[in-house]
């Protein structure tokens, strides 16, 4: 999927996260993560975010994550939603989400 516009998903509430996607200034993929549990889980969160983006076929854009201690399933869900909103996707490939 190609991110064609700025989009947002999720919240800043505890156990959730806010994900912002945008086409981005450069040509590559930039992921910026900020988390309350960066010390222990920063790498894990980064891995989940990048893995989710890869499954969706996102190779370019800026993805900013404000994590509030969310479970991996919530991280996946919010990244997927933000990308779909930013790609203006009309159809959903469910197999790319599981």
């Amino acid at each position: 999927m190609k991110i064609v516009k700025e989009a947002l998903a999720g919240t800043l509430e505890s156990s959730d996260l806010l994900v912002k996607v945008s086409p981005g200034p450069g040509t590559g993929l930039e992921v910026v993560i900020s988390s309350e549990v960066m010390q222990q889980f920063g790498l894990q969160i980064d891995h989940v975010v990048r893995d989710t983006l890869a499954r969706l076929g996102v190779t370019a854009g800026l993805v900013v994550v404000e994590d509030k201690g969310a479970l991996d399933c919530a991280i996946r869900a919010r990244v997927q939603t933000a990308v779909m909103r930013g790609a203006e996707a009309q159809t959903i490939d469910w197999s790319a989400l599981s």
Partner: peptide, 14 residues
């Protein structure tokens, strides 16, 4: 509606 659907889809796989 869209975010809830996707969140539930993911949560169900826990």
């Amino acid at each position: 509606k869209d975010s809830a659907r996707i969140l539930v889809f993911n949560a169900l796989q826990l």
